[in-house]
Structure formats: structure tokens, C-alpha cells
Design a protein around this nucleic acid. Structure first.
Lengths: 218, 218
DNA sequence: CCTGTTAATGACCAGGAAGTCATTAACAGG
DNA sequence: CCTGTTAATGACTTCCTGGTCATTAACAGG
């Protein structure tokens, strides 16, 4: 236990990786911000998670806020493009299209990591208008366009009935939003099964959209 | 501009109001917490808003966190009781019941101040399990019971079709949750009209729940 | 009107975290 | 192998805010 025999006290191996650092820091930041929120996140923790030292962060980002914005911007891939393509090219009925599109949104959200992003937007969006604005423009508006296209398709083919819902198609994805909120607050007390949730979601949406025709079996 | 002629420098009038203070501080705290979140809220600001000085807060609450919890607990009135009563006593059809109940939920949320509470739960619930738990037990569970009762009523009368949605009735209120989230993030860029939103909501829910009977008019 | 109790004040302290910077040592290029 | 450039370090500074406490002055009760 003498201090001289300690193999500890490793002075920390340095490594210069100009290319990789920013990305690693952003990843770490995203995680921390999602867990703690902006104000409660310590840059020290972000640094630890990224395997660097706090000072290093400032070589790439000039402030905590800049890191925050960079982290969020970096991930705003218009993920609705996937669904947009689907809607544009789908050969089958509009009902089947909905049954295909909604699971895909859930997949993007929960299997790929998109819900982490959404969580941050939900919790911090109100306090960072610039970020919320960007997100609104690049994700939400886009999503509304896609939903509008989807709804129009169904209405024009006669499958969907025109209604207040078809005038405000964003409401269609509400259950997905609720799922995100649930996961971040109540899931530990009452875990939700994504599968059942999705089923109920599809059910609600579809029976609300479908014009009745063959379903007259009373 | 001499300093002696300044009628300013009022030394702040003291007032002893043991009864009223806690409530005023809680109100102020609720506002600040809703606007800034727990971590970013300064007790100094809460004090200013309440018309007192920071030290005064500590006469009634022993820490920032205790104030936070007290503020939230104080408002967890089981507001679903209103709707519960409605469901239990409603004389008309289940469709009409839904058309009556949903607007009432929106009213509680947006006209009375309940959405402020919800906003805090949504943004901070993940970081304060004790609070989320309380809320889950006293509001969410209660809400689910009410929705379950409502759905069962409709199913038993034959008005509603049994489905994945009737197995998971919480999904029914998802659009209201989305509205809260929207108001706190995107409303400044694209304000939503509660009326239209509610209409679309009712529309989606109802057509999803209603078994088809008379609606065979194609 | 006096006076003891205690609500309220505001100056203060301590700790924590954002941000800085002089120093160090990887690495590339000669 | 040498050496200049600069990525990376970590000790340091500064500021902010939660929390404390001695002092003050409302008010109630005698």
C-alpha cells in the first residue's frame, strides 16, 4: 500500500483524434441531455462519457448551449422521408398503407433511437425556440405533409371519409406522441407494450378514417 | 439627481401573513417551474413573483425540492372525478357521452389551469419518480378507470365494437396529450385552434369506437 | 401603550459548474 | 531522428444560486 508501488495513477493516455472527437462528444451530450435535461447536465459528465476532459469540449464547441444545438441539429434527419416514399409509391389500399406506415413510425421512434431526440425536444423545446423552430420546420411540417398526402389519397379513392380528422391529419400520430411521453414518465410504474399500443392506435385511426362500405355486417 | 432627494429606496414594507404565504409561494413556484423546469428555476425568482424574499421561502419549505413536491401535490385534484360522475350517470347514448366527456377534459386542461401541471409532469416526471408515481396513481390510473368504464358501457350496449382500442382505452386521450406537448413547443410557430383539434379528436375516437349500424348510407 | 413572539428580511456563505488558459505531448512532415 | 504544430489536459477562476442566520419589525395579548 505504499504509494510508490501503486500501478494506479495512470496519467491518462492522450490520443489526438481531431476527426472523431466532435461526433463522440455529440453522442455523449445527446445521452446526457436526454437523461438530465439541459440545465441539469454537467459538461464534466458529458466529457467523461465521451472519454475526454471538459476542456476538450471547448476546442470544438464554444459553449454548453452551442453543443446542445449542434447535438440536436446533427440528428434532424427528415425521417419522414421513408414514410413519404412509402405513401408516394404504395400500390395497395389506403387502409393497408396506414397499417404499414404506422408500424414504421414506431420502429423509427423506438427501435432506431429517434425517441431520444423527441424526448429532448419535448422537455426543452419550450426553452429553446431556435431549436424548436428548426425541428418544427424540418420534421413536424414534413410529417404533416406526408400525413396530408396519405389522407388525400384515401379520400380521393373513396376509402376514407372526409371529416374534421382529414382536415387536421396531425392528430393521427397523437398516440405515438403519447407513447413517448409515457415512456419518459410512467413506464417504470406501468410499462406499456409497444405492440398492444400500436394495435390500439391503428385501430382507432383506421376505423376513424375508413368510410364504411363492406363493413355493414352489423 | 442628488441622492438625498430620491424618494426611491423604499425599504420594502413588511407584512406578516402566515396563512396566505405558503399558497402564494406555491402558486409562484408552479408558474416558474412550468416555465423554466426544476433545475433552471431560481428560488430568487419564485420569491420575487410571490412578493417575498428568498429567505421567507425557507420558513415554509425546507428545500427547493420540497417546494416543488408541495406545489405539485397541492394540485393533484382527481379531476377525472368530474368525468367519472358523468360516465356513471349519463342518460344518453355512449356516442353522446364521448361528445360530452372529451370537451370537458379539454376544458379542465386548457381553461382551468391543469395543463400547467401536466407540462411539469411531462418535463420533469422522468427525473422525479416520487412525483411521477403519485401522479400516476392519483390521476392516470383514475383516468384509465373512467375510460374503461366508458368503453365498457358502450360495448355492453352494443354501440361500441370490441377491439384492440377497447382493450387499451388510454389511447383515447392521446390527442389531448399531444395538444399539451404541442402547446409547449410548437405553438408559437403554428398555433393550434383547440376547437378544430377537439373536433378532429372526437372524430377519430368516435368513428373508431362506434359499431356501425345506422351509418350504412355509404 | 408595552412587550414578547415570531414572520420576514437581506446580507452572507459554501459549493458546484461553466468557461479559461498555460502547459504537455501526440503526431506529421522533413 | 528532430521538430513544429496543435489536440488534449487539468488546474484555475469566476459566477451563480441554494441554503443559513442574525437582525428587524409586525402584530397580538395583556
Amino acid at each position: 500500500m505504499t504509494e510508490s508501488d501503486s500501478a494506479a495513477e495512470s496519467p491518462r493516455p492522450r490520443r489526438r483524434r481531431k476527426e472523431a472527437r466532435p461526433g463522440e462528444i455529440i453522442d455523449a451530450g445527446l445521452q446526457e441531455f436526454a437523461e438530465n435535461g439541459f440545465a441539469a447536465t454537467r459538461l464534466e459528465d458529458v466529457a467523461k462519457r465521451a472519454g475526454v476532459v471538459k476542456g476538450t469540449i471547448y476546442r470544438y464547441f464554444s459553449s454548453k448551449e452551442e453543443l446542445f444545438e449542434a447535438a440536436l441539429s446533427s440528428r434532424i434527419t427528415p425521417f419522414f422521408d421513408d414514410v413519404a416514399g412509402l405513401v408516394a409509391a404504395y400500390p395497395g389500399s389506403s387502409e393497408d398503407l396506414v397499417r404499414t406506415a404506422l408500424p414504421r413510425i414506431y420502429k423509427a421512434l423506438f427501435e432506431d433511437g429517434l425517441h431520444v431526440l423527441m424526448r429532448i425536444i419535448i422537455t426543452e423545446g419550450g426553452r429553446f425556440p431556435a431549436i424548436a423552430e428548426q425541428y418544427h420546420r424540418r420534421v413536424i411540417s414534413r410529417g404533416q405533409e406526408v400525413l396530408t398526402a396519405l389522407v388525400r389519397r384515401g379520400v380521393e379513392s373513396g376509402e376514407f371519409r372526409r371529416s374534421a380528422l382529414t382536415e387536421l391529419p396531425i392528430v393521427i400520430v397523437a398516440p405515438a406522441v403519447m407513447t413517448i411521453v409515457w415512456k419518459m414518465t410512467f413506464d417504470r410504474f406501468e410499462p406499456i407494450e409497444a405492440r398492444r399500443f400500436l394495435a390500439a392506435h391503428v385501430d382507432m385511426v383506421l376505423e376513424g378514417l375508413l368510410a364504411r362500405d363492406d363493413k355493414t355486417e352489423k
